[in-house]
Design a protein around this nucleic acid. Structure first.
Lengths: 268, 268
DNA sequence: CCATCTTTGTGCACGCGTTCACAAAGACAT
DNA sequence: ATGTCTTTGTGAACGCGTGCACAAAGATGG
């Protein structure tokens, strides 16, 4: 999930593996649910089940935060909620700007998950003059000319890019130059950023393709057991009947239209 | 691999590490872009740069697919596009249903990336009767009562859940029971499914929380260098003086306090 | 046909993440 | 207090993924 940039020197900054950090929000969500039901304590076994992970892993994850449990009893729900929230930095307010108010940007703007977790939509930005001033999810869209001003005035450090792929890098550069140091990218592009800036990407298309891979593998196993052995996945080097032969010019490449130009929607 | 086995490329199915599969779509995207520019061949170095990965990693990834490159030259773009597409199962049509046509579901429905990669939106499903029949992105929404029928008639094996968290598991169960074996979940919930069913989740809230963690760490490092050492995140074992004490019955747990941090935490 | 130069394919080592299994820490009952 | 019982916290082993470094393969030029 994480983007290629940011490496983990490991030598720097104390502990907390990246994999653990990625699971903390999951634990927090499960704990919050328990908290609402006024459940006082929970064992690693129960919480692990609720979060969909292995209990040993959960205990090890928590051990990086400290010894917050009580042997023979479990973990105090409220206490853990507080500790994890603090560790994740959710005890403070994080203003966020969303750039690119198309279908997706608008959906994100209206997403309730923002406000409830300490994240506040500080501004919606779009390059289309026709959008300027128009309220989306109760927030008026501002023009991208004011991007820098908005970022600095509100002290925004987290930016969400929901623009078409074509302009994502430019937007990214401007955000970074203006002071943003964390970016959540929904555009189907690899963003390059300077050291010190974190980028995470959410890519629908990639997720679907990964599912398709597994789906095909499942189908292939079934049929190959009784059906023709070379039904689908046959990596025969010479079987390239349809495959463009090496050196072939742009022959059957006709179907790439909606790829790099996808309007404001989702990852491609 | 290569455990003395004859010189068998071991290119066979079962291989392909998960990490590699997750990167194939990235390579494919970069290759497609090159293809559109009619670039005939590309070296691992160039392609790796375009995909945002290390060239050694890219070569190793490709080695799992087979030896599709030419030493001294590089990889044939068209040929690779075909091979990766085939490996990912993109040479066939994948009907997909989207359940939950709210802001997000509608945005997903309008996403152009679907069609361009072999994914076809077979149906949009929502539980709200008021939505039934209403066209979204050119496709009429169908009522969830017909979910099973839609799945089986179109032979849908991939489902996208964009419903509220509360009903996600129910929807998931129905999809699985109807024959769906791959699910892309946008609802903030842990879905439990039987073996053989793949689930991938996309969670905006989690991504933001991970960014917040790193953001806080960056800020903490800066200030701790010259400012008070216990400014923000100091998981010192003894520093828990302020946080809600474990064991203290749920009474007045909402306490907090050393240096500015908000009360308890947040709702769901 | 041989020399040289480029780029792939991969053996190997290292580090992170996962899992097991168990000793230690406490709660609780007697 | 002492013993028993539950559950945490973690040492250690293992496996996967990453990146290095280089030999082999093949193109290219003489």
């Amino acid at each position: 999930m994480a983007t290629g940039r940011t490496h983990r020197p490991a030598t720097r900054s104390r502990g907390i593996p990246e994999a653990t950090v990625a699971r903390l929000p999951l634990y927090l969500r499960a704990l919050t649910a328990l908290s609402e039901r006024s459940v006082p304590t929970v064992s690693s076994e129960e919480l692990a089940a609720a979060a969909g992970v292995n209990s040993a892993k959960l205990r090890k994850d928590f051990s990086y935060l400290g010894s917050y449990g009580t042997r023979g009893v479990g973990y105090d729900v409220e206490y853990l909620v507080y500790q994890i929230s603090r560790e994740l930095g959710l005890t403070q307010d994080w203003p966020v700007v969303i750039v690119g108010i198309g279908n997706l940007g608008a959906a994100l703007a209206g997403y309730g998950g923002f406000a409830s977790r300490g994240f506040r939509v500080a501004a919606l930005i779009d390059a289309d003059p026709a959008m300027t001033g128009k309220p989306v999810a109760g927030i008026p869209v501002q023009h991208s000319d004011d991007l820098e001003k908005i970022i600095s005035e509100d002290g925004v450090s987290i930016g969400v890019i929901a623009t078409p792929a074509g302009v994502a890098q430019q937007v990214c550069d401007r955000l970074v130059a203006a002071g943003v140091t964390s970016i959540l990218n929904f555009a189907p592009t690899v963003l390059s950023v300077p050291d010190g800036v974190d980028v995470r990407k959410v890519d629908l298309s990639i997720e679907l393709q990964i599912l398709a891979f597994h789906e095909q593998r499942k189908a292939g196993e079934e049929s190959s057991a009784e059906e023709g052995p070379e039904a689908l996945a046959e990596p025969e080097p010479a079987a390239a009947v349809v495959a463009p032969a090496p050196r072939g010019t742009t022959g059957t490449t006709g179907r790439k239209g909606p790829d790099g130009d996808v309007p404001a929607v989702m990852p491609a």
